[in-house]
Design a protein around this nucleic acid. Structure first.
Length: 244
DNA sequence: ACATAGATTCTCT
DNA sequence: GAGAATCTATGTG
């Protein structure tokens, strides 16, 4: 599959970290592997803020979280539960520790390479969950601090088409997954109707399955990136996406 | 120095 | 649904 992507420049990133988490829904994460360029569309993110007790930076800088205190648009990669790697996008001014966790994505290109890292799992599960995502893209400690705003081993991209037609109405909000402190904050964002979301259905906007259809909403933006493009190129709908 | 909790996932049962 | 695997930072002795 052909995917046309351009890097996202640092000054495009919303300064507010919750807004950045929304902004990244529909954007691309690209990973240059030895044998392939892996591309995936981000469908689920969480924001972690400086005054948020669930944020690793809450108690100040440590060797592990130091990347979060650097400039925006870099990777903060850490090991969770001694098992999985987590990919975050740093944000906020230098000296302020905030970041957006990339929780799930829809695989678009380089699926063979991702399968090689993850074993023989269904395509739907390749990148569904932050640890799986890092595994499929072979992300580890070596990427901690990497610049995500330029083509390299790991970077963020936008394609002219599909990501541009995601409006604020297509993005759901919920509480974050797997945390205990400040767990009530609505800082998780997801692409409504995507099949590639992690977490319980109740957090993904699916009420309890009702009588009747009970079937998944139409999947948006899966399949070929090219040819879905251009509805409107307006980037105006990203102003003030957060309604609070 | 040691114990513990945690932004998780896989493998059983 | 429960347990294991296993790294990092923090709080306590």
């Amino acid at each position: 599959m052909q995917v046309i992507a351009r890097p996202i420049s640092r000054d495009e990133l919303p300064a507010d970290t919750a807004n950045l988490a929304r902004f990244l829904i529909g954007k691309l994460v690209l990973r240059a592997l030895p044998d392939a360029l892996a591309v995936a569309r981000i469908v689920e993110t969480e924001a972690y803020l400086a005054d948020d007790a669930a944020c690793h930076a809450f108690r100040g800088p440590t060797p592990r979280n130091r990347a979060m205190f650097g400039p925006p648009g870099h990777a903060y990669v850490y090991r969770a539960y001694g098992v999985c790697w987590m990919l975050n996008v740093t944000n906020a001014a230098v000296g302020v520790g905030e970041a957006v966790l990339i929780r799930a994505a829809e695989p678009l290109s380089g699926l063979d390479a991702m399968q090689r890292h993850r074993g023989d799992v269904p395509t739907r599960d390749l990148l569904r969950g932050p640890g799986r995502l890092a595994g499929a893209l072979a992300i580890d400690r070596s990427h901690d601090g990497a610049d995500l705003c330029a083509r390299g081993a790991l970077w963020l991209g936008a394609d002219g088409g599909a990501s541009g037609i995601i409006g604020s109405g297509d993005i759901g909000t919920s509480t974050r997954i797997g945390i205990t402190r400040d767990a009530h904050l609505p800082l998780r964002f997801y692409l409504k109707g995507s099949r590639f979301l992690s977490g319980p259905a109740a957090l993904n906007g699916q009420g309890k399955p009702r009588s009747g259809s009970g079937h998944s909403a139409p999947v948006m933006f899966d399949g070929d990136v090219k040819g879905k493009g251009r509805a409107h190129d307006r980037k105006a709908d990203r102003e003030n996406p957060l309604d609070r």
